[in-house]
């Protein structure tokens, strides 16, 4: 029952978004191109909570638009990137960060490239150490052939 409701809920929120209204209002952009670029970079790290797998910069959801505005206000007020992201995390949790923080929970995640390489190297090292069956001794016929070849 609850799942049903959750689905209806999700559906209704997501539907208008799926129309891919890929445009934003130019009025919401910051005048200073350097600040605007910074705001965009921050926005790309923040996950839209309605459409979920897009950043708030890409999303056309109403909430994403509001959050874009919030980011721009904070950028204009001269806040650091870290402060703005912390502001978002305080409200929406780590869910909002598309780049997960480095903390005990994500150690394995961030270490995954190194772990994968080390694992691969270990497997190779193990395989190289494997004893290979010694080459088969030559059969009598082969020996004779070899002898002929060497003589000629």
């Amino acid at each position: 029952m609850r799942v049903m409701h959750a689905l209806i809920f999700a559906f209704l929120l997501v539907l208008p978004v799926a129309a891919a209204w890929a445009i934003s209002d130019p009025a919401e952009m910051l005048k200073d191109p350097r600040q605007e670029a910074r705001a965009e970079a921050i926005g790309r790290q923040l996950r839209c909570l309605v459409c979920q797998n897009e950043s708030i910069e890409d999303s056309q959801a109403d909430l994403a638009r509001d959050l874009r505005q919030v980011v721009r206000q904070h950028v204009a007020a001269g806040e650091k990137d870290q402060q703005i992201i912390a502001w978002m995390v305080a409200r929406y949790g780590n869910f909002v960060r598309l780049r997960p923080p480095f903390e005990p929970l994500t150690w394995v995640l961030w270490a995954s490239p190194v772990l994968a390489l080390v694992g691969g190297a270990l497997v190779v090292a193990f395989a190289m150490r494997q004893k290979r069956p010694p080459p088969q001794p030559l059969s009598a016929a082969e020996k004779r052939k070899l002898g002929d070849l060497l003589k000629s």
Binding site: M1, R2, V3, A10, Q52, G93, F95
Partner: peptide
């Protein structure tokens, strides 16, 4: 968990 309604992939926990 999803069937039982205890896990919603679209849900966001409120901090």
């Amino acid at each position: 968990r999803m069937e039982a309604g205890r896990y919603d992939p679209h849900g966001v926990d409120n901090p």
